[in-house]
Design a protein around this nucleic acid. Structure first.
Lengths: 122, 122
DNA sequence: AGTATATAAAACCATTTGGTTTCATGTCAA
DNA sequence: TTGACATGAAACCAAATGGTTTTATATACT
C-alpha cells in the first residue's frame, strides 16, 4: 500500500471488499480505527492503510479526538460512480426490455399450450 | 495479470481506467481485439488480458468469428454495482438536501443583496 | 502453396497491493 | 507519574497487477 496522495480514485477505492465493508460500517455511524478493526480478522495497521486509501478517494474523513481518530463516511464521490453507471443503464435496460418481450412471448406460448391442453382434455 | 477464472468481480474489473475505456468502446459497438487495441498505446497482448479480466467479470463476451475474436458488451453485472450504490444514495441525498437548503438560503441572501443594491441605486 | 493477419500462450519483469511486525509517540486515568 | 490505550510510522514481504517479448497456431488472401 502507498500513500503519496491524490493517487487513489473512487473506482480503485471500492474495488477491495474490505474497504467496501469499512464503508458499510461507517455508513451506520462514525467510528474510531480500533472499533473498525474489531470487525476484521486483520491488524489495525492494515485497516489504517485501507482507511488512508478511502481517505485519498475522499470517501471518508478522519478527525483526531483525544487519542482516537474518528472516521466518518463522505459519500459524495460516489456520485462520480453513479454518473459513470448511468451511461450504461440504457444498455441493460434495453436488454431487460428485450428479455421482458421474450418472457411475455413465452408466457403467451405457455398460455397457448395450457389452452390447447385444456382443449385436449375436452 | 492472471487468469484462473472466477477470480475477478465487477468492482475489480472496473477499477482500471483502461478497462473502463474498453467498456466504453464496446458500448458503441462490438469489436475485434485488434480494433480495440488500436485505441490504446499498449500492446495487443495487454488488451487481450484486460479483456480476459472483463470476461471473468462477465462484463464482455468474446466470440471467435473466422480468425477474429469479436467482443461485445454484457452490461448486466453492472446491476450489482447499481444495487451497491443505491444503498449509499440516501446518504449523499441527505447531504445534498442539506446543501440544497444552504444554497437556497444563500440564494435568498444573494437575492436580498441584489435587491438591496437595487434599492441603493434607486 | 505461400504469405500476411488475428489471436493464443507462455515466460518474464517492475511496481503496486495487501498484509505483517516492530518501535515510537501522544493521551487518558488512577 | 506511571501504565494502559490508540494511533503513527517504518521496514519488510509475498502475491497480484499491468505490462512486455517471444513463439506458435489457425485462418484468409492471392
Amino acid at each position: 500500500m502507498s500513500s503519496s496522495a491524490q493517487k487513489h480514485d473512487v473506482f480503485q477505492a471500492i474495488a477491495d471488499p474490505t474497504r467496501r465493508e469499512v464503508l458499510r460500517l461507517l455508513a451506520e455511524k462514525e467510528r474510531p480505527i480500533s472499533e473498525i478493526t474489531a470487525h476484521f480478522p486483520m491488524s489495525r495497521t492494515a485497516i489504517a492503510k485501507h482507511l488512508q486509501v478511502l481517505s485519498e478517494a475522499e470517501l471518508v474523513h478522519g478527525q483526531k479526538v483525544g487519542r482516537e481518530k474518528i472516521y466518518r463516511l463522505q459519500p459524495e464521490p460516489l456520485t462520480e460512480l453513479k454518473q459513470w453507471l448511468s451511461f450504461y443503464e440504457k444498455f441493460w435496460e434495453n436488454k431487460l426490455s428485450i428479455l421482458k418481450h421474450i418472457v411475455e412471448n413465452s408466457e403467451d406460448r405457455r398460455l397457448q399450450v395450457i389452452k390447447s391442453e385444456e382443449t385436449d382434455k375436452n
